[in-house]
Nucleic acid binder design. Structure first.
Lengths: 192, 192
DNA sequence: GTCTATAGCCCGATAGAC
DNA sequence: GTCTATCGGGCTATAGAC
């Protein structure tokens, strides 16, 4: 693996573990096992390194969201994606960046994060629309709103897990959301 | 206002705006308008100052949650609290701390945050239990789970708002959650 | 209780040899 | 492409006068 890849990988890890402000180029170099000159040869500095690292992370995470698009009925896929295992106490590698002031105030980094959320919300909306078409959710459902609600449950689940230092609250939040979807499903059948 | 209060107030603001790592004692002193000796007279250092500032913030925020306990039926109170105005793009003054690695790895700071969330979730559970008793939510509802789901929607709403630099996604997430609660309410009536 | 001066360290970045 | 040496500056904290 090249020094360049070592560096972006180390930066991605440290952004997750410590945040932008608390991650120094020295830390990154040490973890990557390369010297200082090497880092400044490949990157103009900490900022550019963060941009590349975060872009790579977003690419990975978006790949994982393909769970929303596999087999099963739309509602089944929604529930499966919600219930997929997540490292609650570690936080979301993308969502956590939104609470890092230095990331949000940096247009380059922010646009990477906001792009990821837009793409994710788009996938949610598609799947929710399909669920409505399939008669699995009420016609009155607003796909854009429900997409944001469910994305928020996941992101908020991370917050609860980190607050408690325990995966439990996040899993409970997800189960509660699934129960609400089931209730909405039930209300469709009641209408027929 | 005493120098001490000026200092805790400035620290609270800066924790919110910049996070723990990016806030230096110098910044705090400058905003508080006091000198260095004054700060180290009242506090042992940055850490103790953060502990007092965060405790004060938690006290304030918990006071605001009295919306859950005022007039109206339990479900009305839940919807009212969910829909209360919040500064989405600025983030939650308490919840954002859970995504700050330096806060979570500090037992003193973490216990303040986790205590706030436990208290908040307790209030949610009480209100949800009352809503079930009142026949506003299905008997099958798990109060602990739904409490975490709704707290997660709010916290996740902040994440979406900061990701987009726009209050809109957070408001949409809240409206989607209210719609799900309405659907759950409707399913109770359908059972009767 | 508040101030200024200063310590010792690490920050992010650059220079220049190899 | 990678290394070591070094810069100027900010960091958290302490010392000691007033």
């Amino acid at each position: 693996m090249s020094s360049r890849d070592q560096l972006t990988g180390a930066m991605a890890d440290l952004l997750w573990e410590r945040g932008y402000a608390a991650t120094s180029p020295r830390d990154v170099m040490a973890r990557a096992g390369v010297g200082q000159g090497s880092m400044y040869h490949h990157f103009s500095g900490k900022h550019e390194l963060a941009v590349e690292a975060l872009s790579a992370v977003v690419g990975e995470v978006m790949g994982e969201s393909s769970l929303l698009q596999g087999e099963g009925s739309p509602l089944e896929r929604m529930k499966r994606y919600l219930s997929a295992p997540r490292p609650g106490t570690q936080g979301c590698r993308v969502g956590r960046m939104t609470q890092d002031p230095q990331v949000v105030s940096d247009p380059d980094l922010l646009s990477i994060v906001s792009g990821a959320f837009e793409a994710m919300l788009g996938r949610w909306e598609e799947t929710i629309t399909a669920a409505i078409e399939a008669g699995e959710l009420p016609r009155s459902t607003d796909p854009a709103e429900l997409a944001r609600t469910l994305a928020a449950v996941i992101q908020g689940g991370y917050v609860l897990a980190r607050a408690g230092g325990d995966q439990g609250p996040m899993d409970a939040a997800i189960r509660g959301a699934v129960a609400l979807l089931d209730a909405a499903h039930a209300s469709v059948r009641a209408d027929r």
